[in-house]
Design a protein around this nucleic acid. Sequence first.
DNA 1: TCAAGATCTTCCCAGATCGT
DNA 2: ACGATCTGGGAAGATCTTGA
Length: 340
Amino acid sequence: MIFNTLAENGTNKLGQTYVVHGKGTDLTDLKVVHSRAKRKLITHQTILRMIDIAKADEDKEREKAYWNTYHCQSNLVSSNGKVYGNYCKNRYCTICLSIRKAEIINKYYPVIANWDDPHFVTITVKSCKEHQLRAYFKNIKSTFTKIVNKYKKREQRGTGEKLIGIKSMEANFNPNKKTYNPHFHILVANKNMAEIIVKEWSMRAKPNKVNLKGQKIKKVWDLEKNLIEIIKYGSKIFTEPHIKAKAKETDSHIIYAKGLDTIFKAMKGQRIFDRFGFNLPPEIAESIQSQKILTNFKQWEYIPEVADWVNVNSWEKLADYTPPSHLVALLDNNINKTLS
DNA sequence: TCAAGATCTTCCCAGATCGT
DNA sequence: ACGATCTGGGAAGATCTTGA
């Protein structure tokens, strides 16, 4: 029986209290709760494979970080229509990543909304093998920094305009060729800046490492959409195995745990999202949120077998979430630990 | 496209300096 | 004149820790 582990948990005695931090998640919004359950399920299934990979590599630190994500939001406490839990804040956690994305969007949107004529730029290098990926990321970054510094210096000397924008680093895994394609998504304040970046990038590119056709400029019509595009953050979880085929069936997608592990390893400690040419305006002080003592609460534990949090006393389900069958099938059958 | 806080680390910025 | 690189301060992204 899957619930045996819960059987020994005692009932909440009257007068028992529980301390939580922060605002908690609104339980009355079904969409939010279901989305949380879905993310938990996807992360739970994927991270187990990544733990295996880290273990096989005998990398204790990485394994521990993955375990943190495994435990993310596993034990919850609810009270007054709010649910509280701990966050792992890791990149590979789909729950924490969505929070981070939202925070970035909220912080940066007001700034970039004031840009004259935002343009979207993609700069790329040719795909590389696993062992080259970290070095490739660092090279793109350092070249990009040089370009930014050059124009910053011009502005300082009164002979030009500095570049202003935001950028994000990304790589997708190509399961056919077993390669990774590191690239930058960049949003700049105007067209001129976009053209400068592509020009400079092309000039500095090593012909054997960069296909010059890969660099693209696009005028931004829908700022929000493009901001989200920039903040997609890192790597695709679900990968279409036959890049050219573009199959429609959702369950034809595969999660390449080994590919993801490689990308996260290469990106470790590195900033994926960053700004250049400006700082955010000083923060408006938010009301300080003190800890809260709950006297009337329920405790929940995530039970993977039911893809939901279950009340430790009553076995009631928290999210009452039923994952769609194609997602269940995908998570059961389509997570690969190897590169093939 | 959300809500934990604290701490560690990366990397931006301005200004100085040097080489071409 | 211009670009590269260093420095120190600090912003903010990444990660760790805590938990009545």
